[in-house]
Design a protein around this nucleic acid. Structure first.
Length: 558
DNA sequence: ATGTAC
């Protein structure tokens, strides 16, 4: 006997609905243990978030299902059941996809001219901006590309509404740069291969549960989220995540001299997120039909708490990945000893060792940003305090635009800036502009060092929604890259530099699909993406780095 | 992206 597919919806709000398969083994008798009624109520609780389902009506007839006969007669393919918390049948409302808080005139900006933009991603950007409740500004960065439903490389600022799907499952994903003390002579050319060989023992869990929990302690307490997810702490993950040893090939110190990257320096770029935890949060709080929360709702508050925890966890994860890499790269440094597996043998957590490693790591850290998160910000952006000087000296013509002056501060409100693959232009903690941030290419292609711009002409960050591109952006879907690039490079090893290319990258990737899915050809030209940011007046390119060793995944058994 | 969901 096949299962029967029906739709259940809230009687009070019929736009909120969910599909339900009723197996043939469920019985019509509402009093039975395996009743259809029980199944419907359970689904209404989990998918429609109706705490106490009480009555069921058939739509559009409005008949209430009470007796076994009622259930038997009415459970048929594609019927819609309206679930009530006790209230009477409210009748059929006209199907209306537009939310009353949707903003059909929401401005949508795409900061690209040189970088190719697929039309599907523009449709996704515009549709999202115009249909989700509360969106007041949407920006497509030059790395914009289509996602399953929502675009990647996009920023959405909303009033009152929080939309977890716009951040996605990898909450807290981002990038951090750390300095190493290696001279470039140790990573250039064929030396890169030797360095790649040293990168071992990085797959799988790091040390013990007790060590992981100790690593997750921070100033605000603990960001441990339970062993189920904590066990992945210190691992890079799959997809576009990586850790990369790079050489700074050009670098222009910024005028305040705080530039943290020096020419010929060897640095480590870590791109990873919250592993399984972020996805579990998205799943826990959203259903197919319930994806947006008003800021004061209980769900929004609980979601934000877990979101913030995932961001902390992801940051601790990047730090631990860096520690594990540094233990391989600088074996003489005792501060990194903690990064390797526990060879002391005692198994006891050495708190002093953790403190020392964290301290030294923070000294090495140049920048760490989240590019998948939601942040509450004052809007419209005002000249940040460090920018006062430039405000004072800005020309009177610029004042005539929609730019903001400190006098207008009281007109600001708080909005939620949702970033899905978009880097912030400032440090959310200090509220100061970032000196630099990475715009990674892919493997052999350069990573640009960006410096965000703040000026009256881009309305102090309104134009780019206080954000920049987070990478080159996909030019091909994973499926397309896999099929076309595995053909193109058939019989070739694209994980080593070509013999003529001394400046190339040694790639560690023991997953054969990933080799092609993440090949440079699958991405846009990072120089075009960077130039679009410059042309839009939102960033300058202050330097370039090149990867020497790019670590994706290693099969240790090999 | 992911201790995926079907």
């Amino acid at each position: 006997m096949p299962a029967t597919r029906v739709t259940i919806a809230l009687n009070a709000r019929q736009s909120q609905k969910a599909p339900l398969l009723i197996s043939a083994s469920a019985t019509a008798d509402p009093a039975a243990a395996n009743s259809i009624r029980g199944l419907v109520f359970k689904t209404a609780q989990s998918k429609l978030r109706l705490k106490k389902p009480a009555r069921v009506y058939v739509s559009p007839a409005g008949q209430e299902l009470l007796t076994e006969e009622d259930w038997k007669k009415n459970i048929k393919l594609d019927v819609t059941l309206l679930i009530s918390a006790g209230e009477d049948y409210v009748g059929v409302k006209k199907e209306d996809n537009t939310h009353e808080d949707a903003n059909v005139t929401c401005p949508v900006e795409i900061l690209a001219s040189k970088a190719p933009i697929e039309s599907l991603s523009v449709t996704q950007l515009t549709t999202t901006a115009h249909t989700l409740p509360g969106i007041v500004h949407a920006v497509g960065q030059p790395d914009l590309h289509p996602g399953t439903k929502f675009p990647i490389g996009a920023v959405f600022a909303s009033r009152n509404w929080i939309h977890p799907p716009l951040i996605g499952s990898d909450i807290g994903c981002g990038m951090a740069w750390y300095k190493t003390i290696l001279p470039r002579s140790q990573v250039d050319g064929n030396k890169g291969k030797k360095v790649a060989e040293k990168l071992r023992g990085l797959e799988g869990a790091w040390r013990t549960r007790a060590y992981r929990e100790a690593w997750l302690e921070n100033d605000d307490g603990s960001c441990s989220v339970g062993e189920q997810w904590d066990s992945a702490l210190g691992t890079i993950g799959a997809g576009n995540h990586f850790a990369e040893i790079q050489v700074v090939e050009e670098s222009c110190p910024t005028k305040d001299g705080r530039q943290g990257l020096y020419e010929d320096g060897v640095i480590l770029l870590v791109h990873s997120g919250s592993r399984g935890y972020g996805g579990s949060i998205l799943k826990k709080y959203t259903t197919d039909s319930h994806t947006s929360f008003e800021e004061s709702s209980h769900e929004a508050i609980e979601y934000m708490k877990e979101h913030d925890k995932a961001c902390q966890w992801a940051q601790a994860n990047r730090d631990l990945i860096a520690l594990r890499f540094l233990a391989c790269l600088e074996p003489g440094n005792e501060d990194w000893q903690l990064g390797s597996s526990d060879t002391d043998g005692t198994g006891e957590v050495d708190a002093a060792m953790i403190e020392r490693a964290k301290g030294t790591l923070q000294q090495r850290k140049v920048v760490d940003i989240w590019h998948n998160n939601v942040e509450r910000v004052r809007w419209p952006p005002s000249p940040l305090s460090s920018m006062k000087e430039e405000v004072a000296s800005s020309s009177p013509t610029a004042e005539g635009t929609d730019s903001f002056t400190p006098n207008d501060m009281h007109q600001q409100e708080y909005l939620y800036v949702h970033r899905k693959g978009a880097a912030p232009t400032y440090d959310p903690h200090t509220q100061q502009p970032l000196d630099l941030l990475p715009l990674p290419g892919s493997r052999g292609t350069p990573t640009l060092i960006l410096k965000p711009t703040f000026s009256a002409s881009m309305s102090w960050g309104l134009k780019n929604a206080l954000s920049l591109a987070h990478g080159a952006g996909r030019a091909m879907s994973q499926a397309k890259a896999l099929s076309s690039l595995s053909q193109k490079y058939k019989g070739q090893n694209i994980l080593e530099p070509r013999p003529a290319d001394a400046g190339g990258t040694w790639v560690i990737c023991d997953e054969k699909d990933l080799v092609f899915e993440e090949a440079p050809d699958a991405y846009k030209d990072v120089e075009a993406v960077g130039q679009d940011l410059v042309d839009a007046g939102v960033a300058s390119i202050v330097g370039r780095c090149r990867a020497r060793v790019s670590y994706k995944v290693r099969n240790e058994a090999r």
